[in-house]
Amino acid sequence: METETFQPKIVAFCCHYCAYSSADLAGSMRIQYPPNVRIIRTPCTGRLETEYFMKALETGADGVLVAGCLEGGCHFVEGNLCARRRVNYTRDLLVEIGIEKDRIRMVNISAAMARPLADTIADMVETVRKLGPNPIKRNGSSKSENPS
């Protein structure tokens, strides 16, 4: 698949209190972001476990974006800090597996940051587009058809 034409599939875990609201705001403000992201609302990014990121990548996502509140602004005090540590752990795990660690990224977005969210998504899509499709999909079919 040509890198230029490849449309990556990005799973974006967005915190209800910030990034999800900023995506909402982006819609209200008519700010466009690439349609490559599938947004999943979470009560807090601190709710996310490493296994969620792994399952997303295993079942066919080309990239995972975790968007939590600004540091110091978490509704649950430090959920976003926990999420960042888990994302870092997942990045290390991906290296062990043999997958590019840049397929997963943690960002901090406030509910008012509609434009930065759109820019972040565009940047993530571009990063993953350069990386190419998830290598899991290159070697036989992924589990995307029948996720466990």
């Binding site: 490493t50 296994e51 792994m54 295993e58 062990e96 597996i97």
Partner: peptide, 19 residues
């Protein structure tokens, strides 16, 4: 249970990469 899930996913992916 959680680590079983993580390690199993990792093994499935690593095995697939190696064919």
């Amino acid at each position: 249970q959680r680590e079983v899930s993580i390690i199993s996913s990792a093994l499935r992916m690593a095995a697939k990469l190696k064919g």
